[in-house]
Every structure is written in structure tokens, then in C-alpha cells.
Simulated scan of single mutants.
Amino acid sequence: MIQVTLYDVDIGCQFHKLYFAIQSNSQTVETHLVSQLPISTLIEGREFKIILKDGSITIGSISFPPKQLTKQLNLVRWITLFDPKDDQYDGNFIEDDIEQPRILLRIETNYQYQQKMFKNNLLSSCQLNQKENTQQHIDKKKIQQIIDDHKDMQNKYNSLKEDLLAYRDISQQEVKQLEQEKQSYLQENKALKQQIQILKQNELPIHDQQQKNGTNNNNNKMK
């Protein structure tokens, strides 16, 4: 890969809209309106060509063949643009070109940029995976707590049903209180079931099959 960055242009005349285009293997890689510098492009290849235009008029171009782009090249130079019919770079990359039109260009082919990007991407990926794993752990604990609450509510409801069956002769006030507790349970339990459903739809991980079976059994009992 080759990292190419345009820092400045010096064309020696007035212009309207300058465009900076890069080609690789005769295919245009990117085209930019030269209004905000620097412009940086990463080229996947071993050769490239730069074209500078004012609107549709070509001001000049410069081509760099593979033999000039060694693995140790890392520099910033003023480079003169030529006629597109004969624009191969014939300099030595040691001195700045002084003829106009010219561009101030950085060329980096020592793969330091590629290695840096690889390390940054790897680090970002590791940080993202760690963040996702942490969030999954939190979500798993959250849904497990909801499942436990669901079991507690089921036990409470079963106890209330037993109380209603065992004490037919209790006072109306006590029956009313038990019925109110039952309705309160039903409302709370409905909210818990909705939370569980939402979390499952979001594909939160529940790896304990026994917990899932227990939840399903409890749901069947409530139906």
C-alpha cells in the first residue's frame, strides 16, 4: 500500500475550481475538490498517477511507476506536473522541483502507515469485543435477576392460591386483601414477562439451558 497526501499546489496562474484525482492501474481511485488541504489517500497497489484539473481542463499530471516506489520511501517534496501524454516522474526524490505547475506531495511506501493502521484496528477491535462482552455479562445478570424475580412471584402466587382454598371461612376483608395481592402479582408478573420477552428478542445470551427450561415451565403454569 502507498499513502499519498497533498499539502499544497502552486500552478502560477488563476484558477476556478481545482480538482485533485488519483489513478491506480488506469482506474480513478479518488477525486477531491482542492478546497481544504491536506488531502490523504491510501492506494492498494504499487503505482499511481496524479492529475490536477481546473474544472474540465487538465493542468498537468505525474505518474509514478513501481520501480520508483521502493519500500523505504517516506518523504515530502514539491513535484512538477507534466503533459498527461508524457508525465512519468524522472526526478530522484532528493530535491524539490521548482517548475510550475507543481504540488507539495507526501509519499509513504515503507508500510509504517499500514502497520500502524493494522495495530489501531486490532486494538479497537479488542476494545470493542471487551466492551461487548462486558455488556453481555451485565445483560445476562439482568435477565437472570428478572427470571429469579419471576420465580419468586410464581411462588407467592401459589401461596396465595393455597390461602384462598384453605380458608373459605375467613372474613370478607381478608378475602378482599388476598384478591388485591393476587391482582398486584398479576400486574407485576405481566411486566416481568414483557421484560424477559424484550431481552430475548434482543438476543441476549442465556447459556444455562436449565434456567430457560425453568422459565418456560413457570410460564406454562401461569397460563
Rank of each mutant, 00 (worst) to 15 (best):
T5V: 14
L6R: 00
L6T: 02
L6I: 06
Y7T: 00
D8M: 06
V9N: 02
V9C: 11
D10C: 07
I11S: 02
I11T: 10
I11M: 04
G12F: 01
C13S: 09
C13F: 01
C13E: 10
Q14M: 06
Q14G: 12
F15V: 04
H16T: 04
K17C: 09
K17Y: 09
Y19G: 05
Y19H: 13
I22C: 01
I22Y: 01
Q23W: 03
Q23Y: 13
Q23M: 03
S24M: 08
S24E: 09
N25G: 03
S26L: 08
E30I: 05
E30S: 09
T31F: 07
H32D: 04
H32E: 08
H32M: 05
L33E: 15
L33K: 08
L33Q: 11
V34Q: 07
V34N: 03
V34K: 04
S35P: 02
P38L: 10
I39F: 09
L42W: 08
I43A: 01
E44K: 09
G45E: 07
E47R: 09
F48W: 10
F48T: 03
I50M: 07
I50A: 01
L52P: 08
L52C: 03
K53Y: 00
K53T: 03
K53M: 15
K53I: 04
K53F: 02
D54Y: 03
D54I: 06
G55T: 04
S56Y: 11
S56K: 11
S56Q: 14
I57R: 11
I57Q: 12
T58R: 13
I59W: 00
I59L: 12
I59A: 05
I62S: 00
I62W: 00
S63D: 07
F64D: 05
P65W: 12
P65Q: 09
K67E: 15
Q68C: 07
L69D: 02
L69F: 00
L69R: 13
L69Q: 01
K71P: 05
L73G: 04
L73Y: 05
L75R: 12
L75V: 14
L75G: 10
V76C: 12
W78C: 09
T80S: 12
L81P: 07
L81A: 06
L81F: 08
L81S: 07
F82W: 15
F82D: 06
D83Y: 12
D83C: 12
D83W: 02
P84A: 07
P84M: 13
P84W: 10
P84C: 07
K85Q: 15
D87Q: 02
Q88C: 11
Y89D: 04
D90P: 00
D90M: 13
G91S: 12
G91R: 01
E95F: 11
E95H: 13
E95L: 15
D96E: 06
D97L: 14
D97E: 14
D97Q: 15
I98V: 14
I98Y: 01
E99K: 07
P101M: 08
P101D: 09
I103A: 08
I103H: 00
I103S: 06
I103G: 05
L104F: 00
L104I: 03
R106W: 08
I107E: 05
E108V: 06
N110G: 00
Y111L: 13
Q112S: 10
